[in-house]
Simulated assay, not measured.
Amino acid sequence: MTLSNEPKLITVFGGSGFVGRYVVSALAKRGYNVRVAVRRPDLAGFLQPLGNVGQIVAIQANLRNRASVDRAVKGSDHVINLVGILFESGRNNFDSVQHFGAQAVAEACRAEGIGLTHMSAIGADSAGQSDYASSKGLAEEAVRKIVPDATIIRPSIIFGPEDGFFNKFGEMARFSPALPLVGGGETRFQPVYVGDVAEVVARSVDRTIESGKTWELGGPEVLSFKQCLELLLQIIGRRRFFMPIPFWAAGILGKIMQNVPFIEPALTQDQVVLLRKDNVVSDEAQADGRTLSGLGIEATTLEAILPSYLVRFRPAGQFTKDLIA
């Protein structure tokens, strides 16, 4: 799809991340020129084949550096902010990245008089007990105040070839005889495919969805934490025990893991707090049609996508014949 002979310029903060690469691809296919604002442009070369020559350009920007944010936004026709972190590391903490960083992007958009699409998360709550959720909630409030017609997108956990959920537990299942169930594995998720999320983001740029609203994105199935892992084991053809871990014990374990230097924690204390609440599309969003189905998008199922990238965790990879039914 080509919009014009002179495609508009879209700046994407966090465009080299998991969701970002799919958003950049969706924009390029629509004919937009894409400016990808990332901390390390030299590591974003893999995005180039997603578009035509010169269509996708990576530039340096850091949400903690306001001047770099203003420079990245300058001359754009629309901005997308996908930057988010799951755990804090050094100066990259929830407040600086997810709250004040989002505020800086919104202020830059207001100065340029352009539209903004902001990626948040289901469960965002400025008064939430989780630092992650509260910073996401404060970011939403700041964005809505500064750019009232901004489009805010709240997905449940996102799955796809580069995801950090199914891949993490798939890797764990290769070596561990048991998989952990924080809180007994009763927390409910509504996993949504990364391609569906990217489509909604691209539509917000097209202006084919109503701006100024908060959209909640979830897949066609609501599954408990335990059911997600059961599906994983079925697909990769492995039998593993489940080890229920009470929230209080998981909190202690997370605190220890997050303080181990130079290692990405498998679990943090804040993530344990997040797991105390279900991560599903709200009844209000369903009633208002602020969902994938409300946009006429048929949500992609887990079964349609997971086997395509979890095959590497099977005992003999693609040559594994007998999978657990």
Results as ranks from 00 to 15, higher is better:
residue 11 T to I: 03
residue 12 V to D: 00
residue 12 V to L: 01
residue 13 F to Y: 06
residue 14 G to S: 04
residue 15 G to C: 10
residue 16 S to T: 14
residue 17 G to R: 01
residue 17 G to F: 02
residue 17 G to W: 01
residue 19 V to M: 08
residue 20 G to H: 01
residue 20 G to V: 02
residue 21 R to D: 00
residue 23 V to I: 12
residue 25 S to Y: 07
residue 26 A to T: 02
residue 26 A to C: 10
residue 27 L to W: 03
residue 28 A to N: 06
residue 28 A to C: 07
residue 28 A to R: 02
residue 30 R to C: 06
residue 32 Y to N: 05
residue 32 Y to P: 04
residue 32 Y to C: 07
residue 33 N to E: 15
residue 33 N to K: 15
residue 34 V to S: 04
residue 34 V to T: 05
residue 35 R to E: 01
residue 35 R to V: 02
residue 35 R to S: 03
residue 36 V to C: 11
residue 37 A to C: 08
residue 38 V to Q: 12
residue 38 V to R: 03
residue 39 R to Y: 10
residue 42 D to M: 06
residue 43 L to D: 09
residue 43 L to F: 14
residue 44 A to Y: 06
residue 45 G to V: 10
residue 45 G to I: 11
residue 45 G to Q: 15
residue 47 L to N: 02
residue 47 L to Q: 01
residue 48 Q to H: 13
residue 49 P to E: 09
residue 50 L to A: 15
residue 50 L to D: 02
residue 51 G to D: 08
residue 53 V to L: 08
residue 54 G to R: 13
residue 54 G to F: 11
residue 55 Q to S: 06
residue 55 Q to A: 04
residue 55 Q to I: 07
residue 58 A to Y: 04
residue 58 A to D: 07
residue 59 I to S: 06
residue 59 I to L: 12
residue 61 A to D: 02
residue 61 A to R: 00
residue 61 A to M: 02
residue 67 A to I: 10
residue 67 A to F: 11
residue 67 A to W: 06
residue 68 S to G: 03
residue 68 S to A: 08
residue 72 A to T: 05
residue 72 A to N: 04
residue 73 V to L: 05
residue 74 K to S: 14
residue 79 V to K: 00
residue 79 V to L: 00
residue 79 V to A: 07
residue 81 N to K: 04
residue 81 N to T: 02
residue 84 G to T: 08
residue 85 I to L: 10
residue 86 L to M: 12
residue 87 F to Q: 11
residue 88 E to M: 08
residue 89 S to N: 14
residue 90 G to H: 11
residue 91 R to F: 03
residue 94 F to C: 04
residue 95 D to S: 13
residue 95 D to Q: 13
residue 95 D to G: 09
residue 95 D to C: 07
residue 96 S to P: 08
residue 97 V to M: 07
residue 97 V to Y: 09
residue 99 H to Q: 08
residue 100 F to V: 05
residue 101 G to D: 05
residue 102 A to V: 07
residue 102 A to D: 08
residue 103 Q to R: 15
residue 105 V to S: 02
residue 105 V to M: 06
residue 106 A to Q: 03
residue 108 A to K: 06
residue 108 A to D: 09
residue 110 R to F: 07
residue 111 A to V: 10
residue 112 E to Q: 15
residue 113 G to A: 14
residue 114 I to A: 06
residue 114 I to R: 05
residue 115 G to V: 00
residue 116 L to W: 01
residue 121 A to R: 00
residue 122 I to H: 12
residue 122 I to N: 10
residue 123 G to C: 12
residue 124 A to C: 14
residue 125 D to S: 14
residue 125 D to F: 06
residue 125 D to I: 10
residue 127 A to N: 11
residue 131 D to Y: 07
residue 132 Y to D: 01
residue 132 Y to H: 14
